[in-house]
Simulated scan of single mutants.
Amino acid sequence: MTQPTHHEPHDDTLGTRLNWLRAAVLGANDGIVSTAGLVVGVAGATSERSDLLTAGLAGLLAGSMSMAAGEYVSVSTQRDSEKAALALEKRELREQPEAELEELTELLEQRGLTREVAHEAAVQLTRRDALRAHARVELGINPDELANPWHAAGASFLAFTVGALLPLLAIVLPPASARLWVTVLSVLTALTFTGWWSARLGTAPVGQAMARNVVGGALAMGVTYAAGSLLGAAGV
């Protein structure tokens, strides 16, 4: 009796979604570390809740806006490059279709197909949608999913803000006697989690990623707290 065939679902956007998720984790991590370093540094100089809140909010807004602006510029440049590459490919397909067919055949050969199979595949792909075929095989671009700078900017802004809220709330909500230790423990716990998550997304060793994250965050807080304490003691 013939067994039913089970087809594993394939999604061409999986890699894109993983990249976005990885970027979100890294953005949140940046928000945690930078804001924690800022508020802990201020805490070394003063215990006034209003000062800590002002510094934390300023760091959150400055960091999130900077991340969003940087991501917008970066992705806009990427999108412009992709559009220019597609425009050039479209012109080459119009002006020298035979050369482009041969190029597509060679690219498919390099992926392990025989010459005959590669040529037949290139012919069929060209008949169906020549530009799409060259965009995917030659350029590694999906014409339907060009990078969106506004999406990237919004995602970076949100990720950084979410990460920055943790140390900000941890430093202003507890009583003065506990806020520093609550902040440090909260931040190190969060960094352990983001280190684990980023390692899993990148299929990297989990222990090393978590250790790097925690040590880096602890070092940042230690340095800024020491600087804040020295400046506070000097009355600056």
Rank of each mutant, 00 (worst) to 15 (best):
T2I: 12
H6Q: 13
E8Y: 06
D11H: 04
D11N: 07
T16G: 13
L18R: 15
A23V: 04
V25F: 02
A28P: 01
G31Q: 08
I32C: 12
G37W: 01
V40C: 02
A45Y: 07
E48I: 08
S50Y: 11
D51F: 03
D51K: 06
D51R: 01
L53K: 02
T54H: 05
L60P: 13
L60G: 11
G63E: 08
G63V: 07
M65V: 14
S74R: 08
D80P: 00
E82M: 09
E82V: 04
L86G: 09
K90Q: 15
E92D: 08
E102R: 10
L104C: 09
L104W: 08
T105K: 07
E106R: 10
E109W: 06
E109Y: 03
E109M: 15
R111I: 10
G112R: 12
L113T: 02
L113I: 02
A122I: 10
R128W: 05
D129F: 08
A130G: 06
R132L: 04
I141T: 03
D144R: 02
A153R: 14
A155E: 07
A159R: 05
T161P: 07
G163S: 06
G163F: 12
A164R: 12
A164Y: 14
A164M: 13
A164H: 12
L165T: 14
L168N: 08
L169E: 07
A170P: 05
P174I: 00
P175K: 05
L180Q: 07
L180F: 13
V184Y: 06
V187N: 11
V187H: 13
A190G: 12
L191A: 11
T192R: 03
S198T: 14
A204P: 09
P205W: 00
P205S: 00
V206Q: 10
Q208E: 02
A211P: 00
V214I: 04
V215A: 10
G216I: 04
A218V: 03
Y225I: 04
